[in-house]
Design a protein around this nucleic acid. Structure first.
Length: 299
DNA sequence: AAAGTTCCCAACCGCCTAGTC
DNA sequence: TGACTAGGCGGTTGGGAACTT
């Protein structure tokens, strides 16, 4: 694909090219081979020199990008798994558009790929909901509906791939605050979190959570706005992996009107939001990543 | 089947920072 | 200290595939 500024050459590129005509646009198989072979023999780094020595009429920048985003052997391709999507939603909520930082927690995924995922999938649905992707409303939707559903899907995949969860994980109980339409907090039944190490901070977080919620959510009566505010406060204090693992909604029908500010019919149109295991907006099969996600929880 | 539209993502750009001289 | 270079980052673009009319 040829870019619009293909005839403009920066001073940096002029230096790198040393008078040679620079190639732009899509990489050919021959160029890829040159780059891969050169790096295999000499290693990466010093990209401008590398481009020259490898006989590539490309800028160092271009070579670096091609290698990191496409040719590197550990680059993971294909649809994002539910685990990866959950991680992206959580980490973006925490760090914003810090794509490279987010990518560090998704082995094999590049910042470019995560950025593209965010723009093409997440922003698209924010647009469908007619709200800004950075709005509190949309963040609530992600936290209280999409992320729990992704988690649900992950757990279903885990349980279907292994009939007996690891004993070290099966007894973890996760509580979360749900708020019914009348603004009354209720405590959901314990949820066994298969695949999550009970020794991590989740149980501690739960205790803190309940303490901050006024000594026990079951007894408290809170307004939806207050519940949301408290939830965010606790959420923001949690380590990333715990946050992704711990959030759980009893049902979105109780959460949406009270906490997220969305009504059921507002999200009902989300056509791809299929939790039955088929194709969904969250894409991908994702069934074999349980171990990966468990590993990520140890971050 | 053809034309139009939307979506995806590879590759580019400009800016910034760190390192070197 | 300032100029220069390399590398890294986030934002943007546009070609082609996929989908719709």
């Amino acid at each position: 694909m040829m870019m619009g500024h293909q005839h403009e050459v920066s001073s940096e590129e002029e230096t790198a090219a040393a008078g040679d005509e620079l190639r732009r646009g899509p990489w050919t198989v021959e160029e890829d081979l040159l780059l891969v072979n050169y790096i295999a023999a000499h290693g990466e780094g010093r990209w401008n020199a590398l481009a020259r020595c490898a006989g590539l009429k490309r800028t160092g920048k271009s070579c670096r990008l091609r290698w990191l985003n496409y040719l590197r052997p550990d680059v993971r391709r294909g649809n994002m798994t539910a685990e990866e999507q959950l991680m992206i939603l959580e980490l973006h909520g925490r760090w914003g558009n810090r794509w490279s930082k987010i990518a560090q927690h998704l082995p094999g995924r590049t910042d470019n790929e995560i950025k593209n995922y965010w723009r093409t999938r997440v922003q698209k649905h924010a647009k469908h909901l007619n709200c800004d992707v950075n709005s509190q409303q949309f963040k609530d939707l992600m936290r209280f509906l999409w992320m729990p559903r992704l988690l649900e899907r992950i757990q279903r995949n885990q349980s279907s791939s292994s009939s007996s969860p690891p004993s070290s994980c099966s007894d973890l109980e996760i509580s979360c605050v749900t708020v019914d339409a009348g603004g009354v907090a209720c405590q959901p039944p314990p949820l066994a979190m298969a695949g999550v190490d009970t020794s991590n901070g989740c149980s501690m977080w739960r205790q803190q959570n309940q303490a901050q919620m006024g000594g026990g959510v079951a007894a408290a009566t809170v307004t939806p706005a207050a519940a949301r505010q408290d939830a965010h406060k606790v959420f923001d204090q949690m380590p990333a992996a715990e946050t992704a693992a711990c959030w759980w909604s009893e049902t979105e029908s109780t959460l949406l009107p009270g906490v997220a500010g969305f009504y059921e019919d507002e999200v009902a149109f989300l056509p791809e939001f299929d939790v039955s295991g088929g194709e969904s907006m969250w894409g991908g099969a994702g069934g074999d990543d349980a171990s990966w996600y468990t590993q990520m929880l140890g971050l």
